[in-house]
């Protein structure tokens, strides 16, 4: 059974049809890509699945359970984690606090623990610290744990966002342009990190990318979106040779 399924999802912003009859099925552990020209509706699809918007029509199932109308925090609880195209970090919090925040909904200490520091709270906070540090290790920035995120270079901020998303223990991880704005060196590092995260944790990954090299190298299956509709779906090889995709990106071939 697929882990995540989307059936006939359509979304309107006022009179504008942003997404039309979108279908998706992700198997556990799969890496999938979503490509398409600017404004094709890629980020909108991410926002719809993670609950930031609710679709006008269609249904979304995670492990067979319908999550279409749930609030974003309930969807996150059930195992969808994500990062953003233009980073959304909490400017004045430290790197470690970012990752710990993603664990807080899983801590069970109560108000007495909060005011009197019970042993349960100390234990839970310690375990959270350890887990957060392990994740920072995994994305390669344990030495930055105490830094305030605003002070970090762009590539490091992207890693913070990735570690924070991983800390929610997602079954499917949504990465919205994980290499946007990176230089070639940072790009190669980020691809290596994504591979390593995938091989160590083994969750499914769904990523939006503009750089063909990244998508072609990482993904098993790629969907191409244009004007809110899927125009092609297949392996990297199939997508590369699909005339519809080439047309969407480069325009129609003109025969003189």
């Amino acid at each position: 059974m697929p882990l995540l399924e989307v059936h006939d999802m359509t979304h309107f912003f006022g009179g504008l049809r942003a997404v039309h009859d979108y279908n998706l099925s992700i198997e556990p552990g799969q890496i999938r890509g979503l490509i398409g020209p600017n404004g094709a509706g890629k980020t909108t699809i991410f926002n719809l699945i993670t609950g930031i918007y609710h679709p006008t029509e269609g249904e979304i199932l995670l492990n067979g359970e319908e999550i279409t109308r749930l609030e974003p925090n309930q969807i996150a609880d059930r195992g969808l984690g994500r990062t953003f195209q233009n980073l959304r970090l909490w400017r004045y919090l430290s790197v470690l606090d970012h990752v710990k925040m993603a664990r807080y909904s899983k801590l069970t200490y109560g108000l007495t623990g909060a005011f009197f520091g019970t042993s349960k709270r100390v234990r839970e906070e310690k375990a959270t610290d350890k887990l957060a540090m392990d994740l920072l290790e995994l994305v390669g920035i344990p030495h930055l744990a105490d830094q305030i995120v605003t002070n970090l270079p762009y590539g490091a901020q992207r890693r913070v966002e990735l570690a924070r998303a991983l800390a929610t223990e997602p079954k499917v991880l949504f990465l919205d342009e994980p290499t946007a704005g990176m230089n070639p060196e940072e790009l190669i590092q980020m691809m290596a990190i994504i591979r390593q995260v995938h091989s160590e944790i083994g969750m499914a990954i769904y990523l939006i990318e503009h750089r063909m090299k990244v998508v072609m190298d990482l993904c098993e299956i790629i969907q191409t979106l244009n004007f809110g509709e899927v125009i092609a779906e297949g392996t990297p090889e199939e997508i590369r040779n699909d005339p519809g995709v080439i047309e969407a990106y480069l325009g129609k071939e003109v025969v003189i």
């Binding site: 974003p72 996150a76 807080y104």
Partner: peptide
């Protein structure tokens, strides 16, 4: 916006 995505 991102706080709910942490399950909060």
């Amino acid at each position: 916006v991102v706080v709910p995505l942490m399950g909060i």
